[in-house]
């Protein structure tokens, strides 16, 4: 970054700099998907675009929800809602690692001052039927990014392999700002903290996720989403994108039920299987819409 704010970039500054850097590398800068998702990978810009032969480069911030990870705002490192910065490059370029390291340099993380390492960590999403090989990127012992070469998506082998970088923005911000609690992260460099923005939401959503979400209604919504997804996939030709939205919805509802602690052992595996089946159907449908002009 080596710019004016070199010492302690704010949270929003990190995002702006990442967007700037990846835009310069030719990425299409997208906006977050407007639905609750568990990770940036769920954005159709990653899940669906990772399929088929067409090249694709995109970067975006994705708010991510993990209902079971909420701690009522009491744990300095746990959130049920957090941000990921997601980059997907397809096909994975030969200089993927250098491009990634360039982004850290751009954020002011200079390899002449820090210990950056690639530590084996393969990635898997059972609900998406997706998996990949790669690393956690450690910066002075802190995991700042997940670096993955996708191998499978929607249960299908990727014809062309994409590389995905997922930056944990809160951790990155805590690291570069040197703060011990996520709620103390400087958001805008002008007095606003992460806590000012999200502490109340963490308290209220934790209570909702763990105690008050209407279990019957959520279970019903899951079934509705599942049914709707199936119906959209059954159309000729299928409506792959709306169907995929229903799949995302079902996935989040499952996470919510899981957080409420109402899913039994055997049921859990079954739920995951149901979501994976939807994801697989959507991936296949989307691919079928891509055939011409591929």
């Amino acid at each position: 970054m080596a710019r004016a704010t070199a010492s302690k970039p704010s949270f929003q500054h990190l995002i702006l700099e990442l967007q700037h850097y990846w835009a310069e590398q030719g990425c299409t800068i997208l906006q977050p998907y407007d639905m609750e998702v568990g990770a940036g990978t769920f954005h159709p810009a990653t899940t669906l675009r990772a399929l088929g032969p067409r090249p694709w480069k995109a970067a975006y911030v994705q708010p991510s929800r993990r209902p079971a990870d909420g701690r009522y705002g009491e744990n300095p490192n746990r959130l049920q809602h957090y941000y990921q910065f997601q980059v997907i490059l397809k096909p994975s370029p030969d200089d993927s690692q250098d491009l990634y390291l360039g982004s850290l340099r751009h954020l002011g993380i200079d390899e002449a001052m820090h210990d950056i390492r690639f530590v084996e960590d393969d990635w898997e999403s059972p609900t998406l039927g997706a998996s990949g090989l790669g690393w956690e990127i450690w910066c002075d012992g802190m995991e700042v990014t997940q670096f993955t070469y996708f191998q499978q998506m929607g249960g299908m082998e990727c014809e062309v392999v994409s590389v995905e970088f997922t930056y944990g923005l809160e951790r990155l911000a805590m690291y570069v700002q040197g703060v011990d609690s996520v709620f103390d992260v400087d958001w805008n460099g002008a007095g606003m903290t992460y806590g000012d923005v999200f502490a109340q939401a963490e308290r209220e959503f934790s209570a909702y996720n763990f105690e008050h979400a209407d279990v019957d209604a959520v279970a019903r919504h899951f079934k509705d989403a599942e049914a709707q997804c199936g119906a959209l996939l059954a159309l000729v030709p299928p409506l792959s994108l709306p169907a995929y939205e229903q799949c995302i919805k079902a996935s989040h509802l499952f996470n919510l039920l899981d957080a409420r602690g109402v899913i039994g052992v055997a049921e859990r595996a079954a739920y995951i299987g149901r979501v994976r089946a939807l994801a697989k159907g959507c991936c296949e449908a989307w691919l079928s819409t891509q055939e011409d002009g591929a």
Binding site: P76, N77, E111, A112, M113, H114, D115, I116, R117, C139, D140, G141, M142, M174, Y175, G178, D180
Partner: peptide, 23 residues
Amino acid sequence: VAGTRTRDRGRAIVAGNERVLKA
């Protein structure tokens, strides 16, 4: 065990690792 030598002879690396461990 770091994988590189830094200009400040590892001070920032140690500080970073101490903070991660603390968290």
